[in-house]
């Protein structure tokens, strides 16, 4: 028995079919970040106060550079998904909600790319 009326299909309202993707990507990035955040935090203990060349050599070593790129991508993807839900929950004015989400998405992509480019510049010796 179908409870959905034909008008629902015609208007195309309802689920945009990407809710599960949002939920799943938030979990995947979360799981990836558990070891990455612990590794990065405890690495910073010895590198935060170290000399410039030592820090650069650490960031630029192949394994660290790759892990940092993955960490940055996961952090900003996860932040983007989380902030989107927070904005959707608390910003009730529609135009302001949409504008906030668009600005937030631009900002997180910009910051992620800036961080990744910085790591690659160091790793590739530019």
């Amino acid at each position: 028995m179908r409870y959905r009326t034909p008008i629902k299909g015609a208007l195309g309202l309802g689920s945009a079919k990407d809710g599960v993707h949002h939920w799943w990507m938030q979990r995947l990035t979360a799981i990836a970040m558990v070891p990455l955040v612990l590794w990065f935090s405890f690495s910073l203990i010895s590198y935060a106060g170290a000399d410039y060349e030592v820090v650069r050599a650490w960031i630029g070593s192949p394994l660290v550079a790759v892990l940092l790129v993955v960490l940055i991508a996961s952090v900003f993807y996860h932040a983007q998904l989380g902030l989107q839900v927070v904005i959707e929950d608390y910003v009730h004015l529609e135009w302001l909600r949409i504008a906030s989400i668009v600005l937030m998405k631009f900002a997180t992509v910009l910051l992620a790319l800036a961080g990744i480019l910085a790591v690659l510049r160091i790793a590739l010796g530019a």
């Binding site: 410039y52 650069r56 960031i59 900003f76 927070v86 910051l111 961080g115």
Partner: peptide, 23 residues
């Protein structure tokens, strides 16, 4: 959990700043 998530999102600016400065 929510508040710390929002705060961390803003605070991650520092991570980007640190990496960009190192580069």
């Amino acid at each position: 959990h929510r508040i710390s998530g929002v705060a961390l999102s803003v605070g991650t600016l520092l991570l980007t700043y640190w990496l960009v400065a190192a580069a």
